[in-house]
Amino acid sequence: MAITFGYARVSTSTQNLDAQRDALIAAGVDARHLRVETASGRRDDRPVLAALLTEVDAGDTVVVAKLDRLGRSVSHLVHVVDELERRDVALRSLSEQIDTSTSAGRFMVHMLAALAQMEADLIRERTLDGLAAARSRGRVGGRPTVMSPDRIAAAQMSLAGGQSMAAVARALGVSVSTVRRHMANLQRGPMDGKAVGQ
Rank of each mutant, 00 (worst) to 15 (best):
F5S: 12
G6E: 03
G6Q: 01
G6F: 00
Y7E: 06
A8F: 06
A8Y: 08
A8Q: 04
T12E: 09
Q20W: 04
R21Y: 08
D22L: 11
D22N: 14
A23W: 04
A23S: 10
I25N: 00
A26T: 14
A26Q: 12
A27K: 00
G28M: 10
V29M: 07
V29Q: 00
L34D: 03
R35L: 13
E37C: 06
E37G: 11
T38L: 07
A39P: 06
D44P: 09
D45E: 12
V48G: 05
A51K: 06
T54M: 04
D57F: 01
T61N: 02
V62W: 05
V63S: 11
V63W: 10
V64N: 00
V64W: 01
K66R: 01
D68A: 13
G71W: 05
V74C: 14
L77F: 01
V78Q: 10
V80N: 08
R87P: 01
D88M: 01
V89M: 02
V89N: 03
A90E: 14
R92S: 04
S93P: 10
L94Q: 08
R106N: 06
F107E: 04
V109G: 02
L115Y: 14
A116C: 12
M118W: 12
D121C: 11
L122M: 15
R124C: 02
L128A: 14
G130N: 07
G130S: 03
A134I: 11
A134G: 00
R137K: 13
R137V: 09
R139D: 00
R139G: 04
G142W: 13
R143G: 05
P144N: 10
M147G: 02
M147R: 03
P149R: 09
D150R: 14
D150N: 10
R151P: 05
A155F: 06
Q156W: 03
M157F: 10
S158Y: 03
A167K: 04
A171S: 08
V174M: 04
V179Y: 02
R181C: 02
R181Y: 09
H182C: 12
H182T: 01
L186M: 13
L186T: 08
G189R: 06
P190F: 07
P190M: 09
Q198F: 04
